[in-house]
Amino acid sequence: MNFLVVFIPFAFAIILGRIMFPFILLVSYRKRLFDPIDERKLHQRIIPRLGGVAFAPIQCCLLVLTLVVIFKLTSINLHVESWAILPSLMVLVCGLFILYVVGLGDDLVGVDYKWKFLIQICVASLFPLSGLWINDCYGLFFIGSLSPWIGFPITIFIVVLIINAINLMDGLDGLCSGVVGVGCLFLGTLFLLERAWLHALFAFITTGVLIPFFYYNVFGTSRRKRQIFMGDTGSMTLGFSMSFLAISFAMNNHFIKPFSLGAITVACSTLIIPVFDVARVVYVRWRIGKPLFKPDRNHLHHKLLRMGLSRKATLLTILFLTLFFPVINCFLVKYVDSNIVVGCDILLWLGVHLSFNLEEKRRGKIKSKSYLTTKLHI
C-alpha cells in the first residue's frame, strides 16, 4: 500500500500534465505569448514559453491532497514524525509559490536579474529556518558534522546555485526537463529504498508532470507540431524542487531516512552536469572579462552542437552523463572513500570536457578548410 501512495499520484501527475499543456498551448497562441527570437536562441520560430505554469500547481496540489487522503481517509502508516517533516514541506510549498509568481512575472513582462537573485536568496533562506540544511559532510573533504553557522550559509549558497544551474540548462528542447526528470527519478527511487515515503512522493510527482511536458517540448502536438517551453516559471521551481530533494537526502536526519555513508556525494551526483557546467561558464566569463550574468553560447549543449551532433543526439548524450554519474557514485561510495569518488568525478568531467573541446576545434578547422577550398574554387 505504501508503494501505491507514491505511484498513484505519479500517474495522476502524468494525466494532469497531459490535460494542462494542450490548454496552455491554446491560450498562449490565442494571446500571442511567445518566447522572443534572437541570435542566442536555437529556435527560429514562435514558441510559447509558459509550460512551467503547470508545474508548481500540480506538484503542490497532488502532494497536499495525497497527504490529506492518507492521514484522514486511510489507515496507511507512513512512519512519519509529522512535527519533524511538516515544516520543511510547508517551506517547500511556500518557496515554490514565491518562485512561481516571480517566474511568471519574468516570462510575461520581464524581471531584472538582480531582483530575481535577491528573491532566490530569500527563498533559499527558508530551508535552514525550517530545519532543513547541510549538517554533515560524511567525511567529504575530511569534514564531519557542521555547525549551523557554517551549514546555514552553505545551504543557502547551494540552493541558489542549483536554481540558477537548472535555469541555465534550459537552452535545448527537452534538456532541462530531462535532466531534472532523471535526477528526480533517481532520488525518488533512493527515497523509496530508504522508506522515506513523503520525499519519494514529491520526487515521483515532479517526474510525472515532466513526462508529458518533455513530449510537448521535444516533439510538439500531433497535428501542427506546436512545441512549448517551460520559461523561468518552470526552471526556477524545478531548481527549487531539486534543491529540496538533494538537501533532504544529504541531511543527516533520522526523521527523513536512516544514516547512509556518502549520502551527500550521492545527492550531489544528480546535479554534477548542470552545476559543473554553470561553474565552467561563469569562470570563462570572468576570465575574459564578460558580465557573469550575460547569456552566451558557451554551455555544454552549445559545444556538442558545434561538434556536429544533432539536437536529439546532444540531448541523449547529456542525459546519459546525467544518469551515469549518480548511478556509478551510488555503487562506489559503498566501497571507496567519498573524497576519492569526488576526485574521480572531477577528473572524469574534465576529461570529457577536454575531449569535447578538442573535437570542437577539429570540426572548426575542417569547416575553415572547407570554406577556403570552396572560396578558392569559386
Rank of each mutant, 00 (worst) to 15 (best):
I247R: 01
G234N: 07
I264E: 05
D232N: 15
A263K: 03
L238D: 05
F240E: 04
L210N: 09
I247S: 06
M230A: 04
F240V: 02
K225F: 03
Y216M: 05
N217G: 05
G262P: 10
F219E: 11
F259S: 09
I264F: 00
V209A: 03
L190P: 02
Y216P: 00
F186M: 10
L201G: 13
A267P: 06
L245S: 04
M251C: 10
F255S: 15
R195W: 03
S235P: 02
S222N: 12
F213A: 00
S243D: 08
L198C: 13
S235K: 07
F249M: 04
K225E: 15
F249C: 03
T265P: 03
S243N: 01
A203E: 11
N217V: 02
A200C: 08
L198S: 08
L192N: 07
T221G: 11
N252W: 07
F244L: 10
F255R: 01
F202P: 00
L210G: 11
V218R: 13
Y216G: 01
N253K: 03
I256M: 00
A196W: 05
A200F: 11
R195T: 13
M242K: 00
D232G: 14
T189V: 12
A196P: 00
E194H: 08
A200R: 08
L261S: 13
L190F: 09
F249K: 06
N217Y: 08
L192M: 14
F191C: 13
F249S: 03
T265M: 01
F191D: 13
D232I: 01
L238Y: 04
L201K: 08
I247P: 00
F214K: 05
G239D: 08
F249Q: 01
